[in-house]
């Protein structure tokens, strides 16, 4: 009996909704993002790789895996090899806390909102290490910029998540989802629209997408922190970026959009919940791609100023609004 349970848990970790599902969905999200981005620019985007170019991210991944793997002489060999692996491992680990097929994730423990927030800051740190270990002047500039941007977006990101946790009076993702589904009956975005906007903007900075792609700015510093990475290591970094996209949109769905809950046939909840999860994350990705194609890259000082001058006060205002609503008994 115990071995069967262990086997089911292992399948959950590895196949669904763990590693394999998340990687496949990450590739799908990258394709969705690239296709939308191309559409907004009046282009077509990936077309000939698989149906409608659906296999393009997978083809890129396989090609990079098969390419030569260069370690520069000036690089720190151990760190240079370890950082890509750690980045993928950390991104996969955070995804286990995101509720996908039911109202709880594969892993769930009291206070996991804080744990997920903490691990998502490790993303930024690992990017800094990645640039630092490659020993290239362009990567060093990328590392500095990552660090500075990190100072900007991390606090508003945490505050926007905390305002949701304050509304649900819980620091557990499962409880927050349950609160929206069973007690409130509404997604929390109705009461925390400002926090949702701040979450999306700082998520763009976290993913290093275009208005905030300062650390990898291809036109200024060639490729920023990833300039020296080639072959397998670059493939792992791209995979990690896709997984981060799944994480960011999944966390947004769980905290603001009522998790994977939606109308479903009793008995078939896992299937319907997965479909609702995919719909909600695609909505989030749609907004992110829109923002990505609307704006041009900001300067690094504009980013830090903007986040500290406007985002942090707005996030605090949102927490006050939530507290006021709770005080008046609305939520």
């Amino acid at each position: 009996m115990e071995t069967i349970e262990l086997l089911i848990l292992l399948l959950k970790f590895i196949v669904f909704p763990g590693a394999i599902f998340c990687i496949a969905y990450g590739f799908f999200l990258e394709w969705f993002d690239r296709k939308l981005y191309a559409k907004f620019q009046n282009r077509i985007g990936p077309l000939l790789t698989g149906p409608k170019g659906l296999l393009q991210p997978f083809a890129d991944f396989v090609k990079l895996l098969a390419k030569e793997d260069i370690t520069p002489v000036g690089a720190d060999k151990l760190g240079f090899t370890l950082t890509p692996l750690l980045t993928v491992a950390v991104s996969l680990f955070t995804l286990l806390f995101i509720p996908i097929h039911s109202l709880t994730g594969v892993l769930s423990l009291p206070g996991d909102v804080l744990l997920v927030l903490f691990i998502s800051t490790v993303f930024g740190l690992l990017i800094m290490f990645a640039g630092y270990f490659s020993g290239n002047r362009f990567s060093m500039v990328g590392t500095e910029r990552t660090g500075l941007q990190f100072v900007g977006y991390e606090i508003p990101f945490a505050l926007s998540v905390i305002s949701v946790a304050a509304a649900a009076r819980s620091l557990e993702i499962t409880n927050i989802v349950n609160y929206q589904v069973n007690i409130l009956g509404l997604p929390l975005i109705v009461f925390t629209p400002i926090a949702f906007a701040i979450y999306l903007i700082s998520a763009l900075a976290k993913l290093e997408k275009i208005p905030f792609d300062i650390p990898e700015a291809e036109t200024e510093i060639v490729g920023g922190w990833q300039v020296e990475y080639s072959g397998k290591k670059l493939a792992f970094f791209r995979l990690a970026t896709d997984l981060k996209m799944v994480f960011v949109s999944g966390l947004a769905a769980a905290l603001f959009l009522g998790g994977p809950y939606g109308p479903s046939i009793p008995g078939l909840e896992p299937i319907f919940y997965t479909i609702w999860f995919i719909i909600k994350t695609l909505i989030v990705m749609f907004i992110l791609s829109n923002l990505r194609s609307l704006f041009a890259r900001y300067r690094i000082d504009q980013v830090v100023h903007g986040f500290w001058k406007y985002m942090v006060p707005l996030a605090v205002l949102q927490i006050l609004i939530v507290e006021g609503l709770i005080f008046m008994g609305v939520i």
């Binding site: 009046n42 282009r43 985007g45 077309l47 890129d60 490729g223 990833q226 990475y229 080639s230």
Partner: peptide, 19 residues
């Protein structure tokens, strides 16, 4: 750019020779 758009074939312009 949009008129010819070689991203249809999966071609991307990269900044670094390593990529």
């Amino acid at each position: 750019t949009p008129r010819f758009d070689v991203e249809r074939f999966g071609i991307l312009l990269k900044g670094s020779p390593r990529h």
